[in-house]
């Protein structure tokens, strides 16, 4: 759990850190679409180089980034194998009895896995370089036009920022309760599945009780501090769109053009 990087923020100084969260969110959104333009070795190569460039600019240690990918490596491997076995295109490479592996399958598998990997790397980059609260602010600001459609944008953003605020607190709490039950002889890590599921009850119930109590106290504290919904509220955090933010989006357009040119 300690090695998880997904959703964590590394406060460093870098050009990527300094971008407006809205720019980064739009960038990711665009990137997700642009990725699908790639369809041959050249275009995937361009995409990979581009991603490495982003990582380089963010000053995040690539080894750390890769080590954090361990939990998803299995999913990627699985996707790869699935494609190898199920795609029957191109030349036959291997033929081991009932197992037939085609060249098309290998290529397809490699591309899809790479695409998946790049998407994960770039999204991790977003959370690693943007504090959760900035992401929330960015989302709230981008979603603002939808307020007219009665979408509770302010409430959603507040809920999100409070969840973010309490994630570390609840993680600590989980750790503490788990240790307390282990000290009373609980076993969370071995035994048959049925036993293990049962073993989680002593962890979940206290967690639930405590989260409920926290929520109640927090609600009282918020009311005492004058919270009465989004009406008439001012904002402490203001976002500033700068030249470099536009530049980042232009860069994405350039990438799209390159990929368009390189794809077959």
């Amino acid at each position: 759990m300690e090695k998880m990087i997904f959703g964590r923020y590394l406060p460093l100084q870098s050009p990527v850190h300094e971008l407006d969260p809205r720019a980064k969110l739009l960038f990711i959104f665009g990137f997700v679409i642009v990725v699908f333009l790639a369809n041959n070795i050249l275009s995937y190569g361009i995409l990979a180089v581009f991603t490495l460039l982003c990582i380089y600019l963010s000053r995040i240690n690539i080894r750390f980034l890769l080590s954090g990918l361990k939990p998803v490596i299995w999913i990627i491997a699985f996707t790869f194998l699935l494609h190898i076995f199920l795609t029957k295109e191109g030349d036959l490479l291997f033929n081991i009895g009932f197992l037939k592996i085609y060249e098309g399958g290998v290529r397809q598998g490699a591309f899809i896995s790479l695409r998946f990997l790049l998407l994960i790397l770039v999204t991790s980059l977003l959370t690693l370089t943007t504090s959760p609260i900035s992401i929330t602010d960015g989302l709230e600001s981008l979603l603002n036009p939808f307020k007219k459609l009665k979408l509770p944008v302010h409430e959603l953003a507040l809920m999100m920022s409070i969840s973010l605020r309490f994630i570390p607190t609840l993680m600590d709490e989980t750790d503490k309760i788990m240790k307390a039950q282990i000290a009373r002889g609980a076993d969370f890590s071995s035994g048959p599945i049925k036993e293990r599921v049962k073993a989680v009850v002593p962890l979940l119930i206290p967690l639930f009780v405590s989260a409920f109590k926290r929520a109640e106290e927090l609600a009282v504290a918020m009311e005492a501090r004058g919270y009465r919904g989004g009406e008439g509220r001012t904002k402490y955090r203001l976002l500033h769109w700068q030249g470099k933010d536009s530049a980042a989006l232009v860069l994405l357009l350039v990438l799209a053009a390159l990929l368009w040119w390189a794809r077959s």
Binding site: K176, I177, K179, A180, A183, P206, V209
Partner: peptide, 17 residues
């Protein structure tokens, strides 16, 4: 080991379930 060493944590009431 854990049978022989009992631990009362801070705010132990949080472990009741």
């Amino acid at each position: 080991v854990r049978k022989k060493v009992g631990t009362v944590f801070q705010f132990p009431e949080h472990q009741l379930f």
